[in-house]
Simulated scan of single mutants.
Amino acid sequence: MTIIKINAITVPAGSGDELARRFAARAGAVDNQDGFEGFELLQPTDERSTWLVVTRWRDEEPFQAWSTSRAFAKGHGQEAGEAPAQKPVGISSELWSYKVAGGSAGSTAQA
Rank of each mutant, 00 (worst) to 15 (best):
N7D: 09
N7E: 03
I9Y: 05
I9K: 01
T10D: 02
V11S: 00
P12C: 05
P12T: 01
G14E: 04
G14Y: 04
S15H: 11
G16W: 02
G16E: 07
D17F: 05
L19F: 04
R22N: 02
A24Q: 09
R26M: 00
V30I: 15
V30K: 06
N32D: 15
Q33W: 15
Q33D: 15
F36E: 15
G38C: 14
G38I: 14
F39P: 13
E40P: 03
L42H: 04
Q43M: 10
T45H: 13
T45W: 08
E47Q: 13
R48M: 10
S49P: 02
S49C: 04
S49D: 09
T50D: 06
W51G: 03
L52F: 03
V54C: 08
W57D: 14
R58D: 14
E60V: 09
E61S: 11
P62V: 11
F63P: 07
F63Q: 13
T68I: 02
T68P: 06
H76E: 15
G77H: 06
A80R: 09
A80E: 14
G81L: 08
G81C: 08
K87E: 15
P88L: 06
V89C: 07
S92F: 01
E94G: 02
Y98W: 11
Y98N: 07
K99M: 11
V100N: 04
S104Q: 12
S104A: 12
A105L: 12
G106C: 07
G106R: 05
S107W: 03
A109I: 02
